[in-house]
Design a binder for these strands. Structure first.
Lengths: 231, 231
DNA sequence: CGTATCGTTGAAATATATCAATCGCAGTGG
DNA sequence: CCACTGCGATTGATATATTTCAACGATACG
C-alpha cells in the first residue's frame, strides 16, 4: 500500500456516491463544499485488505479508481459480499466505533482516505454535514434492502439480470459493462456459485440478451429483455 | 385504526430500539430525554397497513405492543420481509422523503407515532439528536447486513437457528420464545417456504434443540446446540 | 359443532450445488 | 515466436437441498 497527499481531491462529493439511487431527502451538495482538499490518496493492490470487520472505523474512504468489495465471512469460509464500490463511491462510513464488514481492493486501486473524527467534529457543528453523513448511511441501507429481496426471493437468472442492470444503470446510455470483479466475487455477491453465474451468463448470451467479449466485458443487447428478467 | 394521544409516552427512548446489537458510537440517551411526551398512540388490526413503500415518510413509529413487519413485494407477489419490529422498536425512520418498504401490523398492536418534521427540525439544532437518528439508521443497516449473510449463504437449518437465536437474544436468559408471526411471515423473512420452515422446526425438535408448545411457542432446550447450528 | 385458516407431513419435481474435466487466456521463459 | 504454465472461466454429469404439489391434521372461531 502506498500513500500520498492529494490536497486537490474532494472526498466528500457525495453526489456521486450512489448514482443508481433516487435522490435522498437531504441535499449533501452544500455540505460537500466544506470538504475541498480533505483526505490522503492511497493505493491498494489486488486482494489487499483496506480494513477488517471489527476494526476501529477511524477512516472514511472514497474510490478514485478501481473497485472495492465489502464482505463478511462465516467460520467455514462462506463469504457474502455486501456491496461493490466503484469510482466515486464512498465506503467505510460508520455511525458506530467499528467496521461492520471487511473491505478489500478487487484490483489495484486508488482510494482517498479521510479521518472520521474530522468529519464527526465538523458534523457536530454543521447540521448540513450531519444530514449528509446520515443520507450516505441511508443510501447504503436502501441498497442493502434491495439486495435482501434479491437474495431471499429471486432466481439465479433474475439475480444476474438485476446485477447487470444495476451496473448498466450506473453509466446511463452505456450498454457496455466492464466487470471489475471475478466470477467468484459475483457469485458471493449474488448468493450463488461460480458455476451457476457462469452458466447464467452463457444462457443470457444464448438468449440474445447480452454479448460477452471476454469474461470481463458485457454488452447489453436487449435492455428490454434484461429488465423483463429482472422481475 | 384508532388514535389517541399519549402525552406520557416517549417515542424516543432509543436505548431499547435494537437490544440485540452492540452499542453504537453515539449515546442517544441524552437526546432521548428531549422527547418526553411526543407522539400519538394508534392501534392497528391484524394485517393492517401502517405505511406503504413509496409513500411520503412523514412519520416515525415505535412499537408499544404487538409486532410489525416491514417488507417489499415483487410484481408476481413474492415477498421479502426486511425485519420484524417488536415492542420497543423504532421503525419507519427515513433520511429520504419516501418509505423504502411497506409496514403492516402482524397482529393487533399499539404504535406510537411522531411527526418526522418535528424530529428533523430539532435535529437541525441538536447534534445529539442528529447523531441518535443516524445511529438508528446505522443499526438498521447492521441488521440488514447480517441478514444478507443469512439469505445469501446459510442453509435452511442455519437460517431458522439464527432466527430463533436472535429472538432469544432479545430476552436474555429467556429460553421461552413467543412467535408473534405466522410460518408464512417467518418463511418470507428467511427466504424459504412455509413447508421448509415447518420441517426445520420439526427437525430441531426431533434433535432435542428446541421444544414446541403449540406452533407459536418455542422453548430452547439446548442453547449450545442452537448456537452451533447458527454457524 | 361445523367451518375456515394455519400448520404439518409426504411424495415428486426442480433449481442450484457439487464434483470433475476441459478450455482459454495471460504471463513467462526458452 | 512459440511451447509451457497457471489460474480463472466454462461445460458436463451427478447429487442434493429446497420447492412444489397434495393431503391431512390441528387449532381457533362463530
Amino acid at each position: 500500500m502506498t500513500v500520498q497527499h492529494a490536497r486537490s481531491a474532494n472526498i466528500y462529493d457525495l453526489r456521486q456516491a450512489s448514482p443508481t439511487l433516487p435522490p435522498a431527502g437531504v441535499r449533501p451538495d452544500d455540505a460537500c463544499d466544506l470538504f475541498q482538499g480533505l483526505g490522503a490518496r492511497m493505493s491498494f493492490d489486488r486482494d489487499e485488505e483496506i480494513f477488517g470487520e471489527g476494526e476501529p472505523a477511524d477512516f472514511v474512504y472514497r474510490v478514485i479508481s478501481g473497485a472495492v468489495r465489502t464482505y463478511r465471512v462465516l467460520n467455514d469460509g462462506r463469504r457474502q459480499i455486501g456491496d461493490f464500490h466503484l469510482a466515486g463511491d464512498l465506503f467505510g462510513l460508520e455511525a458506530g466505533r467499528e467496521h461492520m464488514l471487511s473491505a478489500e481492493a478487487i484490483g489495484r486501486c486508488d482510494i482517498l482516505v479521510c479521518r472520521r473524527s474530522t468529519l464527526f467534529g465538523l458534523a457536530a457543528r454543521s447540521p448540513d454535514l450531519g444530514q449528509a453523513l446520515w443520507a450516505q448511511t441511508a443510501r447504503e441501507l436502501e441498497r442493502a434492502q434491495a439486495h435482501l429481496m434479491l437474495l431471499g426471493r429471486k432466481s439465479a437468472c433474475e439475480r444476474v439480470a438485476t446485477f447487470l442492470g444495476a451496473l448498466a444503470g450506473r453509466q446511463p446510455g452505456n450498454r457496455e459493462i466492464t466487470l471489475h470483479m471475478s466470477r467468484q466475487d459475483i457469485a458471493d455477491y449474488l448468493g450463488l456459485t461460480i458455476e451457476t453465474v457462469s452458466r447464467t451468463f452463457t444462457q443470457l448470451q444464448a438468449d440474445g440478451v447480452i454479448a460477452l467479449n471476454g469474461c470481463r466485458h458485457v454488452r447489453i443487447v436487449s435492455i428490454g429483455a434484461l429488465e423483463r428478467l429482472t422481475e
